[in-house]
Amino acid sequence: MTDVLFWIMSGISVLSAWRVFRTDSMVRAAYWLMVSFAAVAVILVLLSAEFLGLVLLLMLAGEMTIMAVFMVMFMMNPAGLNPMTMVHQHRAAIAAGVLSFLGLGAVGVFGRFPAGVSFATRDVTARLGMELLNDSMLIFQTAGVTLLATMIGALAIASRRGRYGLADEDSIEPAVENSQNAGEGPPSTEKGSA
């Protein structure tokens, strides 16, 4: 039974991961990614890493929705009403993807792992809790402090209201135009007045 479920979930996770880059609708792309992650979370639960899988699910609901919202805000054509592909170095990217799959897959198939170890027992969650708050407390706390620093950093980068007024006031125009101007000298209007 577990095996059947595992095969189904593996199929879902890989197929929906592939759909992420094959759909025109940005919202669908974000939610295909969520489906892929959810399948991975279910596999983790099947592997009896229950807490980990559920935390992954808890996290990615918010994460993927925020991703979808960002897509709608920033992208042209977010609903995929007009088909388009936005890719560069496509062949090289495919080659890199296939190569890394083959390399990692080879490690998985030909690597030798300590086998014959039984599945973890039922009180995995309790043992994880004891580990987190006993021996590995420092690692756990470091993760927490990292997240705090991330929050502060992200706010500092993204906040529009800086100490000296709005962050984007009097900011430089797009660099593309800047470099062109530098090459051609001052713009023509100033030439006339000089």
Binding site: A17, A93, V98, G105
Partner: peptide, 20 residues
């Protein structure tokens, strides 16, 4: 299981390199 993980990683590599 490691093959599935490798497939996910490979698709991810493709996406990270190819998307604009």
């Amino acid at each position: 299981l490691l093959l599935v993980a490798a497939a996910l990683f490979g698709i991810g590599v493709y996406g990270a390199l190819s998307q604009q």
